[in-house]
């Protein structure tokens, strides 16, 4: 099936097998290797991208089902040579080691910063809370990091959230 996506601002038309995930489409067909395959079942967050501005798991999205969507991958976060503030903060806070979960962490954080409303740890559900470290930890728990860089990830995101 032929589908068209806006990927990092550019229209991309691809003929895809309906079985192909958005993740495999990005990696194997469009040469965008930023989104990572960690589990292929929505259990690790390494494949997180922004679909129509919201963070989502590209491994659980069929390419055909996102036809017509805007997709932003980690390759599309920076503004030319100028890193996204999250990217710069991740480097400065040493918020990664092996780097494999990092694109997903970054896309997830970028999406998360634009998500209002409470989380599971918000005391008063009627209030949109400040992004305290506790709130960030809960909201970023869909992105596993086996190297254990969480402490630094949270400090990097906190700096940008301020």
């Amino acid at each position: 099936m032929e589908i068209t996506l806006q990927v990092n601002g550019k229209p991309r038309t691809v003929d895809v097998d309906p079985r192909m995930s958005l993740l495999d489409l990005l990696r194997e067909r469009l040469g965008l290797i930023g989104a990572k395959k960690g589990c292929d079942h929505g259990q690790c967050g390494a494949c997180t991208v922004l679909i129509d501005g919201r963070r989502a798991l590209s491994c659980l999205a069929l390419g055909v089902a996102v036809d017509g969507s805007e997709v932003t991958t980690v390759e599309g976060l920076a503004n030319g040579d100028e890193l996204h503030p999250l990217q710069a903060a991740f480097i400065e806070h040493d918020a990664f080691q092996c780097g494999y979960c990092t694109p997903g962490q970054l896309c997830s954080a970028a999406g998360m910063l634009g998500e209002p409303g409470p989380s599971a740890v918000t005391e008063d559900i009627l209030v949109d809370p400040d992004l305290t470290p506790e709130e960030i930890r809960e909201r970023m728990s869909g992105n596993l990091c086996r190297c254990g860089a969480y402490v630094n990830i949270v400090s990097a995101i906190s700096e940008v959230a301020r």
Binding site: G42, G45, T48, I51, R54, R55, A56, L57, L60, A61, S108, G111, M112, E115, P118, S119, A120, T122, I125, L126, R139, M140, S141, G142, N143
Partner: peptide, 21 residues
Amino acid sequence: ARYPMLARAVLTGASGQVRNV
């Protein structure tokens, strides 16, 4: 406001990425 228990339950499920979809 009216069904805080429901909002809480949904927020404890899965992850932000999954809940968005």
